[in-house]
Nucleic acid binder design. Sequence first.
DNA 1: CTCATTACAACGTCAGACGTAGTAAAAATT
DNA 2: AATTTTTACTACGTCTGACGTTGTAATGAG
Lengths: 114, 114
Amino acid sequence: MGDITISSDVMRGYIDLIILRVLCDGDSYGYAISKTVTDLSDGRYIMKETTLYSAFSRLEKLGYVRSYPGSVSGGRERTYYALTPEGSQHYLYKCDEWGATQDLISKFIKREDD
Amino acid sequence: MGDITISSDVMRGYIDLIILRVLCDGDSYGYAISKTVTDLSDGRYIMKETTLYSAFSRLEKLGYVRSYPGSVSGGRERTYYALTPEGSQHYLYKCDEWGATQDLISKFIKREDD
DNA sequence: CTCATTACAACGTCAGACGTAGTAAAAATT
DNA sequence: AATTTTTACTACGTCTGACGTTGTAATGAG
């Protein structure tokens, strides 16, 4: 709907937050998450698959997600990802950080030369 | 005041926005801007000088700012930066993008598994 | 039988943030 | 008078992470 596309440099800071948020609702896998993100953003942001999968491996190294192979009846094997307790913690932290970012940027934009 | 520090990956998307915003209030130079940013963020974000100066050169290449040498009576020579009309335009665009980002991230965080 | 869709993996490139160090002049401190 | 701190940058290198391109493998649709 919106004609404003959000730049990668802006979204860069929120990739992890978005992935962790989706996993809060239950285990998922790459392809599904990329569809979810595209849908929820009304196409204003398309998370590239390479971006997504590299984020998964980064998050797994950090212990925030855990992967396991999922054999679906009919369909190719998928790698599912689950949120760990540390991942939940990190998600909450990221939400707080998002709040702080909103405060900070709003402060910069709104101030009418103090 | 806030104990939450905002990560570089988050701020990465807003460096240009912040610089352009400061220049809206009048010409300025690197050192002054870095102080302004630290002050206004209550120390939650410290823009590194290398980050700032490389942003300046990027913004100048894009035609969003214009630099000129400023000889101050007493004190070392400074390079001042001024906003161009294109820079003003770009600033407004970045504000819209910021609005779109707020909408999108809020949507992700708040949804209670519709 | 071919093509699209699903579901990835393995490269490589490139921008940009940051660490470190160095330079230079003025102001402040000793 | 000599040293340190603050101001005001510049240069160089590293590293993370987003993205482009390509390839692969399986299923389903036409």
